[in-house]
């Protein structure tokens, strides 16, 4: 399995998700990811012939439904904080329809 990802890879990934990783954090993620990949290799060794794939880790359904009560909103400024471009409280994006 081709799994070796370096610090630059994770820094790039973090950047695309709009946050920064410092060197220390990136190193730690590289190590964690390598461990994770080894564990997946162990799982790959399990014979799953004839076993139906599951969608959820548990088969018992839940019963929770949220009551229709207002909990919280964020301010317009907070909502727009990550937007590259905004105009009059709206997200501004390139036009893609004619």
């Amino acid at each position: 399995m081709e799994t070796i990802k370096d610090k630059a890879y994770f820094k790039g990934l973090a950047n695309r998700l709009m946050f920064d990783l410092n060197d220390e954090e990136a190193t730690s993620i590289v190590d964690e990811f390598a461990t994770l990949c080894q564990q997946l290799e162990l799982l790959e060794a399990v014979d799953t012939t004839g076993v139906e794939p599951m969608v959820y880790p548990f088969e018992t359904p839940t019963v929770y439904l949220r009551d229709d009560e207002e909990d919280h909103t964020i301010s317009q400024e907070q909502a727009m904080a990550n937007a590259t471009k905004s105009l009059q409280g709206h997200f501004s994006v390139p036009k893609v329809v004619k």
């Binding site: 207002e70 909990d71 964020i74 301010s75 317009q76 409280g89």
Partner: peptide
């Protein structure tokens, strides 16, 4: 409130103020 969040449903409110 919304289908999956506790933000209020709205009509005619200031843009991007009924969101979380």
């Amino acid at each position: 409130t919304k289908m999956f969040s506790g933000a209020p449903t709205s009509f005619g409110m200031k843009a991007n103020t009924c969101v979380n």
